[in-house]
């Protein structure tokens, strides 16, 4: 399967009054046609900035995209594109849905018009054709009574419904890539399940490639083909879903998996918790960004950044524990070694 998106050495900094904040520091990954890649991490790790940069949705004034960054969509480097060409890509080839459907929908426009707008601009459909297609989309995202709801306003819908409308807008032009930035975080758990199922179904039906940005490991387990874990602006581990959950190798991944109380854990026992907070990205540490909070930190970790060690073609880890000179360590998730 070919790679539809390739990101190489992406570096993004924000210039604030206090200095330069290096939000994304040399991130590289790819997305294959038809697959769902989950980008996992906590606040401040750079996952949202990364996803927005794929469509160059970051504000120009304070943002600097470092030289050498490449975002290749079907071979073309998006970063080099001008605004006009970008407009042709956004919505048509690459679409995005956001976390808060309340603020991402225009409150003064009927939802039918919001879906239709995209169709008329990108697919050059007439008003009548766009309306027909809009009704199809509404039915596809399981909105009941599409004939009536097409003329409703966003505030007349619940959170889950609005998110479906957003999905309808995003998928109306049948884009090749859908970027979903925390699409279910603001929703109730039963609605979350519905929305994730919808996204997976539509993905299969339309063959869309999806990048799912989230911090919820449960959601990832149920829907992702591959996962990459980000921390402090870098990708620290990547692999297939099975590899990450059943054979994780990075201490941060271990910490994330251990933070969720399992079914067997003793009530009111102390949960595993990471001490401290992520590093200040205005002055990123020269070594591994996770060193200050890592139980397995060695002096090399503070001195130098680890290179990526790749095993099995899809599983990559940036950690000094992978180096042959480091001691054998018991993997807390698998129980095995390293």
């Amino acid at each position: 399967m070919e790679k539809i998106l390739e990101v190489r050495d992406l570096g993004i900094s924000f210039h604030t009054y206090a200095g330069e904040v290096e939000a994304v520091r040399g991130v590289s990954f790819y997305l294959k046609r038809g697959e769902l890649l989950a980008v996992v991490g906590e606040s401040g790790c750079g996952k949202t900035v990364t996803s927005k940069s794929i469509m160059k949705l970051l504000p120009d004034s304070t943002v600097e995209i470092k030289k050498g960054s490449e975002v290749r969509f079907e071979g073309r480097d998006i970063i080099k594109l001008g605004e006009r060409e970008l407009e042709k890509v956004r919505g048509k080839e690459i679409s995005m849905i956001f976390q808060d459907p309340m603020t991402s929908l225009n409150p003064t426009m009927k939802i039918g018009d919001q879906i239709g707008e995209s169709l008329m601009i990108h697919k050059k459909l007439s008003r009548r054709e766009a309306r027909k297609k809009t009704l199809e989309m509404l039915a596809m995202v399981n909105i009941p009574d599409p004939e009536e709801r097409i003329d409703s306003y966003p505030h007349e819908f619940s959170g889950g419904m609005r998110q479906r409308v957003m999905i309808a807008i995003a998928l109306s032009c049948e884009p090749k890539i859908l970027i979903a930035d925390e699409p279910t975080t603001a929703l109730d758990v039963t609605i979350q399940a519905q929305i994730m199922k919808l996204i997976k179904n539509l993905q299969k039906k339309m063959g869309t490639s999806v990048i799912l940005v989230t911090h919820d490991l449960g959601v990832v387990a149920g829907s992702a083909d591959r996962v990459q874990v980000m921390y402090a602006g870098k990708v620290v581990e990547r692999g297939t879903t099975d590899e990450i959950y059943y054979n994780p190798k990075h201490p941060y991944t271990w910490a994330l998996l251990k933070s969720v109380p399992g079914a067997g854990s003793q009530k009111k026992s102390e949960l595993y918790s990471l001490k401290g907070t992520p590093p200040d990205l205005m002055n990123p540490p020269k070594g591994c960004p996770f060193a200050a909070r890592c139980d397995y930190c060695m002096s090399v970790c503070i001195e130098r950044e680890p290179e990526e060690t790749v095993s099995s073609g899809t599983h990559g880890v940036r950690c000094w524990l992978q180096h042959p000179m480091s001691p054998e360590v018991k993997n807390p998730i698998t129980g095995g070694v390293r």
């Binding site: 290096e22 001490k275 401290g276 907070t277 200040d280 205005m282 002055n283 990123p284 540490p285 020269k286 070594g287 060193a291 200050a292 909070r293 890592c294 139980d295 397995y296 930190c297 060695m298 002096s299 090399v300 001195e303 130098r304 950044e305 000094w320 180096h323 000179m325 480091s326 001691p327 360590v329």
Partner: peptide, 30 residues
């Protein structure tokens, strides 16, 4: 940046001893 990794530093075995993290400064505000 000036803290770009210096690739010429040699890797020696004593650099690979696990010491764990230090919690001093964990609650610092920079």
């Amino acid at each position: 940046k000036s803290n770009e990794t210096d690739k010429t530093v040699q890797l020696t075995p004593d650099m690979f001893v696990i010491e764990g993290c230090s919690t001093i400064g964990a609650e610092e505000i920079n």
